[in-house]
Design a protein around this nucleic acid. Structure first.
Lengths: 190, 190
DNA sequence: CCGAGGCGTTCGTCAAGCTGAACGCTGAGA
DNA sequence: TCTCAGCGTTCAGCTTGACGAACGCCTCGG
């Protein structure tokens, strides 16, 4: 990339500059006011919003508190808007067992932190899932049927409406106890 | 808090110190190696892992890249392990309409970025939800019944298994078209 | 018409983060 | 046993971020 343009994605400092200004505007606050609340010099904030400067964590943290947004909102870029996936549509997870289907409903790009699946499981075969990347957590809400799932050592049984979460970074199982078992799976990558 | 102890939660610099060391160990890398990959002096990294120092964003970003973890992993604290909430249990969302109940299944602390709800809606009343904090997105998967939901201007109708997401930071509605309508709601705060 | 108050930017000064070199330490290998 | 390579820590220096004051700009209100 040449110089000033097309850098609208990569550099963290530019993302911070954008985020800082966006969040401040949305809060309807003046630069002066935010600087005062955060306890940083307004000159510092001015430079940060201009993309100049390389804030320390303490400075950025203080600004996050003053703007009342989680820290990570300031260092990452926003996303799209509306999506619908009808039952039966959407990309289907490749599965070793025909009795297990997982449909990817929502996924962020590589550095995103949660995937949303609709899974259907039929009795007769236990799906042994290999561990995913470290730190991931799986959240399961059963819609219909009964599902045994969880870490291999300590699986749990969920009925419709039941919810559980467990580590996804160690071996775990999915097994239907009734035909037509469906569940919503939120795979969270921290 | 007195001095060194019990500070295991608040200060961002301590969180960073922990995270940096944890991620480095899990990657099986030496401090020297990580510093080299990230292009920062190993003295800098040493101080950061010791909790001394207040890194700039560029430095921390480089370390995140070198460790191959998302930036936010370094500035936030890990979580618990396993949880189950049986149908009917769990804290219930206060609602203006008796015909709408939302049960909080999973939530992080204030700075967390997604809440997981099980909602049940009965026909007869439309729930007008006030906008939540900016940037939030709502993901809905219908378990049973039929649900009309979405932004006030453009609501959509979902059948069992259908999925949709829409901005949660503008007015939106939930309305059941059948008795016994239930859905899983992932409220994502970016 | 013009002074007051707020806004965001720019400039010198000072403290603090980042650096590279030197240090003590441990373990493998001749 | 001695050596050497690699580890993580500590120490002066230079660079740079954060600060406060002064500046130009705009909008009210007398």
């Amino acid at each position: 990339m040449s110089d000033e343009e097309a850098r609208s994605s990569s550099a963290p400092l530019d993302i911070i500059a954008e985020s800082l200004q966006r969040e401040r505007r949305r809060a309807g606050l003046s630069l002066t006011e935010v600087a005062k609340r955060a306890g940083v010099a307004k000159s510092t904030l001015s430079q940060l919003e201009a993309g100049t400067g390389n804030p320390s964590v303490e400075t950025l943290w203080a600004l996050g508190v003053a703007l009342d947004v989680p820290f990570s909102r300031l260092v990452e870029r926003p996303g799209p808007r509306v999506q619908i996936i009808r039952a039966g549509e959407g990309p289907v997870l490749p599965s070793d067992h025909a009795r297990f289907t997982g449909t990817l409903l929502s996924s962020g790009r590589p550095n995103t932190r949660r995937d949303l699946y609709l899974v259907t499981v039929e009795p007769g075969a236990t799906r042994h899932a290999e561990p995913h990347i470290a730190g991931s957590i799986e959240h399961v809400v059963v819609s219909t049927g009964n599902l045994r799932c969880g870490p291999c050592q300590e699986p749990i049984v969920l009925a419709p409406g039941d919810y559980a979460n467990f580590p996804g970074d160690e071996p775990h199982v999915y097994e239907a106890l009734e035909p037509g078992t469906t569940a919503v799976l939120v795979m969270e990558h921290i």
